[in-house]
Simulated assay, not measured.
Amino acid sequence: MNEVYEFLKSCGTYFLATDDNGQPRVRPFGTVNIFEGKLYIQTGKSKNVSKQIQKNARVEVCASKGPEWIRVEGELVRDDRREPKVDMLEHYPDLKKMYSADDENTEVLYFKNATATFYSFTAAPKVVKF
């Protein structure tokens, strides 16, 4: 999982796909964090992406860097505890302008039953489950 985190972090931006009543929705994200041994992302509960995840937790992430890319599929689980929100915001202090660990909007989610596949034009795919 650390390798997945490092790759996504080095990309800066990755793309998260959700399901909106049968219509795929893809948007850029930039937050990724490891907290208590789980891979987390962050968004706002008021956003459509959050509502889509709560309706169907199965998502996919895609990111690329040069000739390599990654796809991560799994379920996202909301963690309403304050501690993972604080940790995320400490790693992304610019977000503190919009989010707080104590507001009703900040949402952190971790991957469950995830499979990451690393791809390259020059090597066979590598699979990591977490």
Results as ranks from 00 to 15, higher is better:
residue 46 S to E: 11
residue 19 D to A: 15
residue 60 E to C: 10
residue 46 S to D: 10
residue 97 K to C: 09
residue 1 M to F: 13
residue 1 M to R: 12
residue 117 T to N: 08
residue 127 V to N: 12
residue 28 P to L: 03
residue 118 F to A: 00
residue 64 S to Y: 10
residue 31 T to N: 01
residue 66 G to D: 03
residue 7 F to R: 00
residue 102 D to L: 05
residue 38 K to Q: 14
residue 33 N to C: 06
residue 97 K to V: 12
residue 130 F to R: 05
residue 13 T to M: 11
residue 25 R to L: 07
residue 37 G to H: 03
residue 69 W to N: 04
residue 63 A to I: 00
residue 119 Y to C: 09
residue 71 R to W: 13
residue 1 M to Q: 05
residue 69 W to A: 01
residue 30 G to V: 00
residue 39 L to K: 03
residue 106 T to Y: 00
residue 45 K to Q: 14
residue 70 I to A: 09
residue 5 Y to P: 02
residue 77 V to A: 09
residue 119 Y to R: 07
residue 26 V to Y: 01
residue 119 Y to G: 05
residue 31 T to R: 00
residue 57 A to T: 09
residue 36 E to C: 03
residue 23 Q to N: 15
residue 44 G to Q: 13
residue 95 L to N: 02
residue 68 E to F: 13
residue 34 I to T: 08
residue 23 Q to W: 11
residue 29 F to R: 05
residue 123 A to C: 13
residue 84 P to C: 08
residue 102 D to W: 02
residue 83 E to H: 04
residue 126 K to L: 10
residue 124 A to Y: 14
residue 106 T to Q: 01
residue 16 L to P: 06
residue 29 F to W: 04
residue 1 M to E: 08
residue 128 V to K: 13
residue 4 V to E: 03
residue 56 N to G: 09
residue 88 M to T: 09
residue 107 E to A: 11
residue 65 K to A: 02
residue 92 Y to D: 09
residue 11 C to W: 02
residue 23 Q to H: 11
residue 6 E to M: 11
residue 3 E to V: 14
residue 34 I to V: 14
residue 34 I to S: 10
residue 96 K to Q: 05
residue 86 V to A: 14
residue 66 G to I: 02
residue 15 F to G: 03
residue 96 K to Y: 01
residue 22 G to V: 05
residue 7 F to P: 00
residue 56 N to F: 13
residue 27 R to N: 11
residue 77 V to E: 07
residue 102 D to Q: 05
residue 53 I to F: 09
residue 59 V to S: 01
residue 97 K to F: 07
residue 111 F to C: 10
residue 99 Y to E: 07
residue 80 D to A: 12
residue 10 S to P: 02
residue 38 K to P: 13
residue 71 R to G: 11
residue 41 I to S: 01
residue 6 E to T: 15
residue 94 D to P: 11
residue 100 S to D: 01
residue 69 W to C: 09
residue 125 P to V: 02
residue 78 R to V: 15
residue 59 V to N: 01
residue 39 L to I: 02
residue 32 V to M: 01
residue 102 D to G: 08
residue 79 D to P: 06
residue 93 P to T: 07
residue 42 Q to T: 07
residue 78 R to E: 15
residue 111 F to E: 13
residue 90 E to V: 13
residue 14 Y to S: 00
residue 83 E to Q: 14
residue 8 L to R: 03
residue 92 Y to R: 13
residue 123 A to W: 14
residue 64 S to M: 08
residue 89 L to Q: 11
residue 68 E to N: 15
residue 74 G to C: 10
residue 31 T to E: 00
residue 91 H to M: 08
residue 35 F to P: 03
residue 1 M to H: 12
residue 76 L to A: 06
residue 128 V to R: 10
residue 11 C to R: 04
residue 123 A to Y: 14
residue 36 E to Y: 03
residue 28 P to W: 00
residue 51 K to F: 06
residue 111 F to M: 12
residue 46 S to W: 04
residue 72 V to W: 03
residue 105 N to C: 07
residue 111 F to D: 13
residue 35 F to G: 08
residue 57 A to E: 13
residue 70 I to Y: 04
residue 74 G to F: 12
residue 37 G to A: 06
residue 31 T to A: 02
residue 72 V to M: 03
